[in-house]
Design a protein around this nucleic acid. Structure first.
Lengths: 201, 201
DNA sequence: TCAGACATGTAAGTCGTTACATGATTCA
DNA sequence: TGAATCATGTAACGACTTACATGTCTGA
């Protein structure tokens, strides 16, 4: 039993911050969690129904002008408790499947140009991601130092933060998860350089 | 079409080194690729059948003393070409789902002790893995420097390497994939320290 | 008026894990 | 003789992706 249900608890956790619609959840994950998480509608909507069935969330109609229904999901104490319990469970060690490493490993009997290109392409792609992360990092660093959240960032934080204090805390974790992404990418880049500098003799 | 079929090409690649049985494949993946790859029997045996159906591999009986059948899979030119084609395809960017980051992110409104424990536990667990990796690294480093492959390592390499030259190359990629694992774990540990050193003010 | 964002959902299919079932061989 | 390892498979389930279907609202 239990096993996965990653989506279930990810959604529950987001709802514990603020009531949201399925669409909100998707938007939030894509904009703020994309460097370490993702969800798609095919999971989100059925999972929301599941949460309602299990009485871990409640569905409320939002007033809508037209005929199109809009819903918002709230999380009652029961759901909050379930979320807390999940948080305290030990994290399962993720099953790794690194395609680059696999290709690198399997191509060792090929000409060394092949491996060099493989690593070179990967390096370039990772470096591009790093530039993006660094840009976000700078914005967040500044916001944390000055305790002011300009434009886009404020919009993002207002999706989840209820109070000023939680806004500051969320900004901090947001920054720190980005730091994690940056460190891991830097490690990958350093590895690429190590490989490229010591080719097959 | 195409899409995934990770298992298919992983197996094809291993077979391109040396003919193997399903059991051999499992053993090899578990012992040498486990820091970046995994497979289970439920995937391996059906995938081997699939490869045979597609004429990318051929199944041969191994002489067995009893009634229990044993098989070995060989890879013909057609399979080798398919593998090469796959190697040259651009690598798909993996979909990340990092449970630790998720929990860390979602728990930001909890007391800071909770986050400290979360990160502390994770750090300890990652550190334990690092120690293992470092031990293997030392063995491989020595083998590479001295071009001698003692005991266990020789056994491992003999599963896949046909010639002395390929043995050396495989030892090198083996070492380098481990280096990757080590660098990534070190990045994670450094991140943990960063988080633990700058708690919520 | 038309593109793009808002908004909710379903169906089909693939991928992957887990548990089970079976039996042989080897070695202490 | 019994445990561990060798060895091959299947069935059921669960997780996840992709594509589709449908319709609204807002602003240029």
């Amino acid at each position: 039993m239990a096993a996965k249900q990653k989506t279930k608890f990810a959604i529950l956790g987001l709802l514990s911050w603020k009531p949201m619609s399925g669409y909100d959840i998707k938007k939030l994950v894509d904009s703020a969690l994309s460097h370490f998480w993702h969800e798609n509608y095919g999971q989100i909507y059925p999972t929301l129904e599941l949460l309602v069935d299990e009485k871990l969330a409640s569905k409320r109609d939002l007033p809508s002008t037209g005929k199109r229904k809009r819903f918002q999901y709230h999380i009652p104490r029961r759901g909050r408790r379930a979320f807390r319990d999940w948080l305290e469970e030990p994290i399962e060690t993720p099953v790794v499947r690194n395609q680059l490493q696999l290709k690198f490993f399997l191509s060792c009997d090929f000409d060394s140009d092949f491996q060099a290109k493989l690593i070179g392409d990967y390096r370039a792609q990772q470096d591009a991601v790093l530039q993006e992360y660094r840009a976000s990092e700078a914005v967040l660093r500044k916001a944390l130092d000055e305790q002011a959240y300009p434009g886009e960032l404020d919009e993002l934080l207002s999706m989840t933060a209820k109070t000023d204090a939680s806004r500051a805390r969320q900004c901090r974790v947001f920054y720190l998860t980005l730091r994690h992404g940056i460190r891991v990418i830097e490690a990958r880049l350093a590895w690429c350089d190590e490989v490229l500098q010591c080719p097959i003799e």
